[in-house]
Nucleic acid binder design. Structure first.
Lengths: 223, 223
DNA sequence: ACGCGTCTCCACAGGATCTTCACAATTCGC
DNA sequence: GCGAATTGTGAAGATCCTGTGGAGACGCGT
């Protein structure tokens, strides 16, 4: 995460708060430093003030985005400035007008990361999670380099897990979303899930899928 | 709840009023004491005067927020001071200009807590309360960084508490909302709650859940 | 119709978990 | 302080859940 803000005090506040949220934060105080920092640390998100010494936030945004796609959250001093930026189509992913509370900032940051995460993994035909590689288009799977041959349902099941890494999926949800079943209260049939889980574990390794007793299963994205 | 205010009289009246509202209130009269108190009691909200001996409210706010995210309500002597603070982007979540009525203060406090409650539970998948971290999607829990393995009911119980921090939950309500039981008049079975509370305390620390004699249990979020 | 792969279901075993119970320890009202 | 009510604690049986192997059902192309 990179914070670009010329006011040292504000920059420090933002950085401190984001660090408290668990992010790794770098700080830059002017345009050239921002571009350089982006190139060297390759942050997964940039918080960018518009008004900067050197060259301004717009220019920074343009240069950074030109090099590689990265979500940008822009800070503007006034609302009409925001309008202008949107009009210019600078390519920022979200805007925040000063003054703002830290709470709003962190909320936006999280929302932005969620959005990016989602779009990159869903739109992407290829999902990589640790040593697990899935090519959704070609319907191929490999773990630690070795390919595995999955049956249709096994594959759909795995993709379903991979789209929500680490999240626990109850059997009912799996049945309704992978199988298109409508299990309302019917406790029968849910064991079919187990069989396919077993098959996946046999083909891809027992440690790939975690079972959560009384609830369902979750994919362990090895990291 | 932590009140930081150098004027002893004002501090006392604020504290008294907030206690009357049912909050647990600690008081600090200067900057260093404030930071220390925040670290030791981990309040869920800080009412912070700007002008303080030691170092001022801005510095306190920065240090507190740097350590962990907590809502801050700032008290300023003059309106233009508020403007300045806002401009600095210190990271307070709300401001109040002296003089103010107790009614306004309590209203703001409640509003702020509501806002926090909303954002923390709606944002949803992750609940952080002091050193307790719960990932609802992954069904994982950690206290002070160390993970704990909970059984299904234990986890549901904890989440139920965590969504209502510090609120006392009678056994009957827990049974009806976590267990889906219909305890109407049946006084039997309520002891099952105790067993699971015991398990939670063993796994996450005895100080996490407070027992309210004759009523039920409540989660202590670091205060 | 037949073979083949795939899917669903079943029954059993082994764990894991839940509830209950009796008793010790604590708290509260007086 | 004292008695009554409430809570903490440990253990044990009952209950529930999951892993597993295999048997049949189903779809599909030949």
């Amino acid at each position: 995460m990179l914070v670009v803000e010329d006011d040292v005090t504000i920059a420090a506040s933002i950085a401190a708060r984001l660090r408290a949220e668990g992010f790794t934060v770098d700080v830059a105080h002017d345009g050239p430093a921002a571009v350089e920092a982006d190139a060297s640390v390759e942050p997964d998100l940039v918080v960018l003030d518009v008004m900067l010494p050197g060259f301004d936030g717009l220019e920074v945004c343009r240069r950074i985005q030109g090099r590689r796609p990265v979500p940008v959250l822009m800070l503007t001093a006034r609302a009409d400035e925001t309008d202008m930026l949107v009009g210019l189509g600078v390519g920022a992913d979200d805007y925040l007008t000063k003054p703002f509370s830290m709470r709003v900032l962190t909320a936006r940051v999280h929302a932005l990361l969620r959005r990016v995460e989602r779009s990159s993994s869903v739109a992407g035909t290829r999902i990589v999670l640790g040593d697990l590689e899935i090519d959704v288009d070609q319907r191929r799977v490999a773990r630690a380099g070795v390919a595995a041959q999955l049956t249709p349902i096994e594959f759909d099941l795995l993709v379903h897990f991979a789209r929500r890494p680490r999240a626990v999926q109850p059997r009912e949800r799996l049945l309704s979303e992978v199988w298109d079943w409508d299990v309302h209260g019917t406790s029968a049939g849910t064991r079919a899930v187990d069989s396919h889980i077993k098959a996946l574990r046999r083909k891809l390794g027992a440690d790939l899928i975690r079972t959560v007793h009384g609830v369902g299963y979750a994919l362990e994205a090895g990291s």
